[in-house]
Amino acid sequence: MKILVCISKTPDTTTKIAFTEGNTKLDENGVQWIINPYDEWYSLVKAIELKEKDASVTIHLITVGGADTEPIIRKALALGGDEAIRVNNNSNDSFIVAQEIAAIAKEGSYDLILTGKETIDYNSASIGSMLCALLDQNFISAAVKLDLNGNTLQVVREIDGGEETGELNFPAIISCQKGMAEQRIPNMRGIMAARTKPLKVVEASVTNATTHIKNFELPPAKSGVKLIDPDNMDELVRLLKEEAKVI
């Protein structure tokens, strides 16, 4: 079985977000870059778990981005991918990114493509669904569990207020979230091995963007908290009713 895991580079979850160049760019000063948590904790580790059960599984990683994404790819390889492909395209348009991934996916004829539920920077949650259309393959989004039974995949996905279990065959695209696997830390052997694992760079082939970011904005600051005497909860109820009008 061949698995393609989509990897994206995002700012660390503790990053204080600020913008520069007239609010058109993220201020990257002091930003720690990480593998998008959904890509790392859930889709990559799930792929590794499948490989641990069946040694014939190969895991390829793909990222669409500039050379600055390579430390992230090496970390992903240290966790457990076999080889990686970087498509040298800096676009942040999901449509472009999905088309680049689809081109690689077609060439590699993968059985399973795993993505994170969304990236924690643009939160588009688009790549898996776009690949579904570009490759005309089954797509399960926001999956919390994946089991393999011969050639049949059993996948549990989140639905509003519950979970739904479905069965499908390869090839398939699954977007992964919490529940899918447990976070791991790369070990020294993995880090050493990652240095020599193949990382192939492919030139960008798609450039026609369908969207572009005009500017960013930070949410307006809260006007300040109104502190209520802990012995006067009637006052809090009154404020929630009459001032905030939420109950």
């Binding site: 999901s94 449509f95 999905a98 939160n123 588009s124 949650a125 688009s126 790549i127 898996g128 669904s129 776009m130 579904c132 259309a133 570009l134 797509f139 989004s141 926001a142 996905r157 989140e158 639905i159 509003d160 369908t210 969207t211």
Partner: peptide, 23 residues
């Protein structure tokens, strides 16, 4: 932008050659 909307809106955009903003 609920669970099912997220699952299909980007695929529909691709099929229509349309730009999409989610969320």
């Amino acid at each position: 932008h609920n669970l099912n909307g997220r699952a299909i809106a980007p695929a529909v955009a691709v099929k229509l050659g349309a730009g999409i903003v989610t969320g």
